[in-house]
Design a protein around this nucleic acid. Structure first.
Length: 470
RNA sequence: GGCCCCUUCGUCUAUCGGUUAGGACAGCGGCUUUUCAAGCCGUUAAGAGGGGUUCGACUCCCCUAGGGGCUACCA
């Protein structure tokens, strides 16, 4: 059997981090088994449709390297088809018209609540005569179509992650499958589409597990072969509730905009709920695909905690080619074409965890803070040494050409050699130098700072320091 | 409330009856070092509780507790 999976989000605005993981696991599964990964848009609730959401979703998926092989298939475009399926179900006595008003339903629910009974439809219209019901519907009486699920016994289901699950039919509602606006609900649309798209494996969030009986009932009613199901554990907020807005960013695009790299995001999210049973932490999605095993996915939800994501992102940031790194920073608006700021960005790389931290660090590396003369004195040294050392370094670098400042590694090596040759200590030479260049207790190394500032600016900062000490 | 799912360090996880319960992030300590980072090394820290089954349970079963999901004419 050929493997076909789908990612089927509703277009409510953006790709949720949980959605990214669902999409990723589907993608990994498809790649692992040489199958097809399709995108389907579940937009049957037109009141929740957000303009531009589909394009946005696609953009985020593509940014993460999860471009669908097929789709997007737009569910709402298949409305007629879904309606036909619903009528078929009525024909098979697996569904029925319901004319109950919102008011009556509310009333029923209220009574059930008062009696502490499960809140379900009381099946008031379940046994209406079919011809009567059809006539009323034809005349335009407002109605919905409900599933006519069994009332006794239970259904045994198999989940690729959880194994066997059994749910009593008494717990399953006569779910609405066609709304009064003529659009199908998720349950009907998703099952019919999964069948029509020949989906072999449904990999989706755990929140769907309880409605699996309805879906299986539909497959069975049509005599269709149901796909295999895998219900993924949920991603959780730090307080262990279902991951939501409010407790931090959940939109993939927000993470990308902040300067989290797609590779880091994908790597991180993949390991939330599954891991390839090794001590390795860094994987490309292709490497993950080779090892992916859906049956080994965890059952318990995983807290989406960005600490490890930060570490991963810092790691990926460091592994980028310098030109790519600078381009990324520029694309995201954290950097411009200014040469000095670009150099500052280069030296800032090893101290940032996300690109959005860049502007602040660039500011720090390109400016001198106000400082007092005594800050120029290393803790293990004295003022006169600081002064003479600084003067010596000044004279030393003043002889160098501009080019020399462009190579921080060589600059550092040569200078250290020179310091040793002079019989100076690193501390009483480098400390005053660095403070002269930054005006700060804490800063990048003097070599990095000189690299950023260039020859003239470096000398003038040192001169200013010498003047301060005079 | 009902039904379903779940439960190993703070967090993500390994372990598929026999391990000193391993790794990673975070934390802490150290090394390096002109400072801050980075890097390297080390270290603290876990099987929810109670019953079984078994020669032997983190691992299998039951109960309890706790957490989560669902309970819409939303997905």
């Amino acid at each position: 059997m050929s493997v076909r999976v789908r990612f089927a989000p509703s277009p409510t605005g953006f790709l949720h981090i949980g959605g990214l993981r669902s999409a990723l696991y589907n993608w990994l599964f498809a790649r692992r088994h040489g199958g097809v990964f399709a995108l389907r848009i579940e937009d049957t609730d037109r009141s929740r449709f957000v303009e531009g959401a589909i394009e946005n979703l696609q953009r985020s998926l593509e940014a993460c390297g999860l471009k669908p092989d097929e789709g997007p298939f737009i569910q709402s475009e298949r409305r007629e088809k879904h309606l036909q399926y619903a009528y078929d179900l009525i024909e098979k006595d697996k569904a029925y018209y319901c004319f109950c008003t919102k008011e009556r339903l509310d009333e029923v629910a209220k009574q059930q609540q008062a009696l502490k009974h499960p809140i379900m439809y009381d099946r008031h219209c379940r046994n209406l005569s079919k011809t009567d019901a059809e006539n009323r519907a034809a005349v335009g009486d407002e109605h919905v179509i409900r599933l006519k699920v069994p009332t006794e016994g239970s259904i045994k289901m198999r989940d690729m992650i959880r194994g066997d699950v059994e749910i009593p039919w008494a717990q399953v509602d006569d779910q609405v499958i066609i709304k009064s606006d003529g659009y199908p609900t998720y349950h009907l649309a998703a099952t019919c589409d999964d069948h029509d798209m020949a989906i072999s494996h449904v990999i989706r969030g755990e929140e769907w597990l309880s409605s699996l009986p309805k879906h299986l009932f539909i497959f069975e009613s049509f005599g269709w072969q149901a796909p295999q199901y895998a219900h993924l554990p949920l991603l959780l907020n730090p307080d262990r509730s279902k991951l939501s807005k409010r407790q931090g960013d959940v939109a993939v695009e927000d993470y990308l905009a902040k300067g989290y790299l797609p590779e880091a995001l994908v790597n991180f999210v993949a390991l939330l709920g599954w891991n390839p049973t090794s001590d390795r932490e860094i994987f490309t999605k292709e490497e993950l695909a080779e090892l992916f095993d859906i049956t080994k996915v965890n059952k318990a939800g995983a807290v989406f905690n960005t600490e490890k994501l930060n570490w991963l992102n810092a790691h990926y940031l460091k592994s980028l080619d310098e030109s790519v790194y600078l381009l990324k920073a520029r694309e995201l608006g954290f950097l411009d074409e200014d040469v000095v700021r670009m150099r500052a960005a280069i030296i800032a790389r090893e101290r940032i965890t996300v690109l959005s931290e860049l502007p602040a660090l660039i500011e720090e590396a390109t400016t001198v803070s106000d400082y007092s003369a005594d800050m120029l004195v290393w803790k293990k040294s004295d003022a006169s040494t600081a002064k003479t050392r600084l003067k010596s370094v000044r004279d030393y670098i003043a002889e160098k050409d501009e080019d020399w400042f462009g190579k921080p590694l060589a600059m550092e090596e040569e200078t250290r050699t020179w310091i040793a040759g002079q019989g100076f200590s690193n501390g009483d030479t480098l400390w005053p130098l660095r403070v002269a260049l930054s005006g700060r207790e804490k800063s990048p190394s003097p070599f990095e700072l000189m690299f950023v500032a260039g020859k003239d600016e470096s000398l003038s900062r040192i001169d200013a320091a010498l003047e301060k000490m005079a």
